[in-house]
Every structure is written in structure tokens, then in C-alpha cells.
Simulated scan of single mutants.
Amino acid sequence: MSSFQHLAPELRLHAGPDSLQALVRELDRNGCRRAAVIGSASAARPGGGFDLLRPVLGERLCGVFAQTRAHSPVDAVQEAVDFLAASRADAVVALGGGSVIVTARAASILLAEGQPAHALCSRREADGRWTSPRLQAPKLPQFVLPTTPTTACVKAGSALHDPASGRRLALFDPKTRARAIFLHPALLRGAQADVVRAAALNCLAMAVEGLESSRADPLSDASLMHAVRLLDEHLPARLDGDGQDAHREALMLAAVLCGRGTDIAGGGLASALGHAIGPRSHVPNGVVNAIVLPHTMAYNAPASGARLAKVAAALGERPRQGGDAATLAVGRLRQLLDRLPIARTLREVGLAREQVPAVATAAMQDWFLQYNPRPIDSAAQVQTVIEAAWGE
């Protein structure tokens, strides 16, 4: 056996139609008496998620915030900070997809630290080193009720979008990791099919990047390979109509497995490009991930080629002895993507050709880039991959 360490955070997860019965128990376990709920406008509609949650929380509910926005822009997060301060909450319940969960975490960080996101975010220094401030203040406990298959539900990072500068402001604080997660079928059923699919595509890209990574270990590989198997089986399925619950629940489990696995293995270039392009093109990061992933895999193949055999195996293709694992894995991934109703080029999602240099520069500042299996030293290298994915 080769030497490795697998240091994983605690996971408390409740799944099923009776999962919300455990929410009050988990609040009690953490000594919480005033729960503020952060969600989206869709959750606030009649019959939405808030209606399901109110009777569960009862008198513990001290306020509801439904003004979150896609990509967690700084101004929307600041509104959530003001809401938490006014509510005098001692717990935060995040009900929604990735942007909701990130907004809840980021607002808790900004409230506790008393500083703007620019002062607290991770950054790449002029000499190329990556630094991340230690955020010492106690944070409000987080309880997460996801509605889409997002890895954010098990993560401790919170990335905000600054529309003024175009920067991604990444905050990291282990104290904001969910104290408990609740997977309820009615909540997973509520999101639109294209939103669910986009979140699952983000999960697919992250799982592939984790399997490419030299930081992975046998336990993270097991989680990530099974995540890819679930995604391969359930992403092409109908996510509305009869039978949708089983597919949505399987995709949610894939997201949990992927989030846990990539805590060990890290991300890479496809994730960084999703972060840089998604807000600029006003499309979900997962759609961008799906477009660029075959190209980032090909770019990384000189460094990760042998590890791509794990990706191919998870997608149902076992490379022959001495075979080209990279070509097999990329080809099998393209077959999966061809079955989905999604764009396949960056041109189709509205990225202008003249935006490519700015996107490459922005991606160079992304924390995920340091884990890319093939080192990236210049924006010109990133630009080559973007241009390949732009299409003709």
C-alpha cells in the first residue's frame, strides 16, 4: 500500500421524506434557538420551499431572506449580511441551489469578520504564491437544504462575484461548513430541469478534475468514480414528469460524493473557466464547464493521461493495456455530452471573441488553478484552451 492521508470533515446528512423532522434536533444539538432562512424568490412563492419549512421551524423562525441572485454578487450578499444582523439569528438555514448556499455562508463570514470581501478573499500574489487569510471570528452555524445537485452543500468555500471589477472573490472558512444537510424529495423536485442539469454538469466537471488530480487518494477516487457513474446514468434522463424523483435524488447523491472527493483532490482549469465565463455570459457555471471540459482534459493529458483511465472506467470504458486512456476518456465524455440538450461551444452561450483575453486573465487569479495537473504559468496558455472551446 502506498502512503497517503485522508482527512475528511464530519458529515451529518438526513435524506428522505422524513428528513426535515431531524432539523429541530440538529438545531438543538448546536444550541440554536433563532433560525434565519436564506433562499431565492422561487422558494418564497406559494407552495414553495419556505411553506414546507415554516411549520418545521415554528417559533424558531426569526426571518426570511429571498433576494439571493445567481453567482452571489457582492451587493446581494451584503443585503443578506444586513438581514442577518437585523434578525439577531443564532443559526442560518440555506434553502436553495449553489448561489443560495454560497450567499448564506459568505454573509455569515462578512457579518462575523466585519470587513469587506475584498479584504478577506484568497488571492494570487505578484510572485505567483497563493494566499488565503485566516478568518478567526466565530460564525453562525449553517444548516443546508439543497434544491439542486450542487457540491456547495458540503463545501467550506464561498465565492462572490464583483460586477464592478469582474473579479471572483473566494472566501474560505471551515467554520461555515454545514452542521447538517437535509435532502428532501419535495425540495429536490422544485427546481427547473435545466437548472438541475446545469448543477449536475458542474458536478461532473469537478469529479473529472478530481480524478485527474495527483492529490487524489484511493478513498477520494472511490467517491469521485461513483459520482461519475451516477452522473453518466442519470444526467441524460428526463428530469421532469414521471420518474424524475429517482433521477434528481441520484444526481444529488453524486454531488455529495463529488464535493467530499474534491475536498481532497481539488479542482482545475475547467472549474476556473466556469467561474470566469459564467457571470460574463450570464449562464450557469455548469454549462460552461461542460463546454470546456473535453478541451481542458486534452490540454492536461500530458500530465494526467494515465489517471484519465479512472474517468474512462467510471464512464463504462476500461482502457486496454497500453491503450490511450486520455483519448478514450475524452471520447466517452463527448458521447455523454452529445446526449444532453446543451450548448457545445462558448460562442453559443454568448462569449464574444474579443472577451477571450480578459477571461484568460481572470482565470489566472482563480484559486482552483493551482491544482491543475498541468502547470499553467501564463494567460496565453489559458487563452489557447478557451479558443479551442469557442468554436468556429
Results as ranks from 00 to 15, higher is better:
residue 44 A to S: 07
residue 169 L to I: 00
residue 151 T to H: 08
residue 29 R to W: 11
residue 290 A to I: 09
residue 172 F to A: 09
residue 370 Q to Y: 05
residue 137 A to I: 01
residue 58 G to C: 03
residue 372 N to I: 04
residue 161 H to R: 05
residue 117 A to F: 02
residue 252 M to H: 13
residue 29 R to V: 06
residue 253 L to W: 15
residue 275 H to Q: 12
residue 26 E to S: 06
residue 223 S to E: 12
residue 253 L to M: 11
residue 337 L to G: 00
residue 180 A to V: 11
residue 335 Q to H: 13
residue 224 L to R: 12
residue 131 T to E: 09
residue 121 C to G: 00
residue 315 L to V: 11
residue 242 D to G: 04
residue 350 G to K: 12
residue 373 P to L: 00
residue 77 V to I: 11
residue 297 M to N: 12
residue 288 V to E: 05
residue 290 A to C: 10
residue 347 R to Y: 14
residue 279 P to T: 09
residue 220 S to G: 03
residue 175 K to V: 00
residue 242 D to F: 13
residue 314 A to K: 03
residue 351 L to V: 10
residue 97 G to D: 04
residue 285 N to W: 04
residue 106 A to F: 07
residue 271 S to A: 12
residue 160 L to C: 03
residue 236 P to R: 05
residue 6 H to L: 01
residue 357 P to F: 00
residue 235 L to D: 07
residue 115 Q to S: 13
residue 166 G to W: 01
residue 25 R to L: 10
residue 126 A to G: 13
residue 221 D to Q: 12
residue 21 Q to K: 14
residue 361 T to I: 13
residue 68 T to Q: 04
residue 70 A to K: 06
residue 160 L to R: 07
residue 377 D to V: 03
residue 314 A to W: 04
residue 367 W to N: 11
residue 310 K to M: 06
residue 276 A to G: 08
residue 284 P to Q: 05
residue 88 R to H: 15
residue 13 L to R: 10
residue 283 V to H: 03
residue 338 D to H: 05
residue 364 M to I: 01
residue 34 R to K: 15
residue 280 R to T: 10
residue 267 G to I: 00
residue 240 D to S: 14
residue 37 V to F: 10
residue 374 R to L: 13
residue 249 E to S: 05
residue 301 A to S: 12
residue 176 T to V: 15
residue 344 R to C: 05
residue 101 I to D: 02
residue 65 F to T: 00
residue 96 G to K: 00
residue 228 V to L: 15
residue 340 L to R: 08
residue 113 E to W: 06
residue 187 L to P: 10
residue 236 P to D: 10
residue 27 L to R: 02
residue 265 A to P: 11
residue 172 F to H: 11
residue 13 L to V: 12
residue 99 S to Q: 01
residue 260 R to Q: 13
residue 109 I to H: 05
residue 69 R to P: 04
residue 203 C to F: 10
residue 207 A to H: 11
residue 369 L to M: 03
residue 84 L to Y: 09
residue 227 A to R: 00
residue 152 A to H: 04
